[in-house]
């Protein structure tokens, strides 16, 4: 083989491998991409049952209910809409009511979000970024979200503090 032929073989091989890889990537991008939504976006887009997506928002106060054998239900809200979520398993250490959460799963026929993964915030001041972004967009963001809610102490607590004792 001449130098040119050899080079052509090489380039041919490279192109074949690259074409295969491109095919794989495009195929995978079509099938295995998961979109992020908040409850309001779910309501707007009318996502059908069975379509996987990531749901982000705040766990509504008082909505967490534990059922038998690690089944839990809670409601995720973003200030605009709420969505009931069902999950079976152990919730992360930092899962709390009123805190940001991201769950991955799909809606079932009754409009309940069946989550198979639940991620909570990582530390005291961390809010899952998708949740933070979405809340910011909707104007529900306060800069000290996730930090201690000390910017809004109770009205009744303030005047009673001295007077009651």
């Amino acid at each position: 083989m001449t130098r040119k032929q050899r080079r052509l073989t090489l380039i041919g091989c490279a192109l074949v491998v690259l074409a295969i890889a491109a095919g794989l990537v495009l195929n995978a991008l079509r099938d295995s991409i998961v979109f992020f939504s908040t409850p309001s976006m779910v309501a707007e887009k009318h996502l059908g049952p069975g379509k996987r997506f990531r749901l982000g928002g705040l766990v509504e106060q008082g909505s967490l209910k534990r059922g038998d054998n690690l089944a839990v239900t809670f409601t995720v809200g973003d200030g605009g809409a709420t969505l009931p979520v069902a999950y079976k398993g152990i919730l992360p250490d930092l899962f709390r009511e009123g805190q940001g959460v991201v769950a991955e799963g799909a809606l079932d026929a009754n409009g309940v979000f069946r989550a198979d993964t639940v991620l909570a915030k990582h530390d005291e001041t961390y809010m899952p970024k998708d949740v933070a972004d979405a809340l910011k967009k909707q104007g529900h963001w306060k800069d000290d979200y996730g930090a201690k809610p000390n910017s809004m102490p109770s009205a009744s607590a303030a005047p009673t503090q001295g007077a009651m004792r």
């Binding site: 794989l24 995978a28 099938d31 295995s32 991409i33 998961v34 979109f35 990531r54 998708d130």
Partner: peptide, 11 residues
Amino acid sequence: KISVGAPFFNF
């Protein structure tokens, strides 16, 4: 916003 998870890389 999308997330590309394990399935993409496995495929």
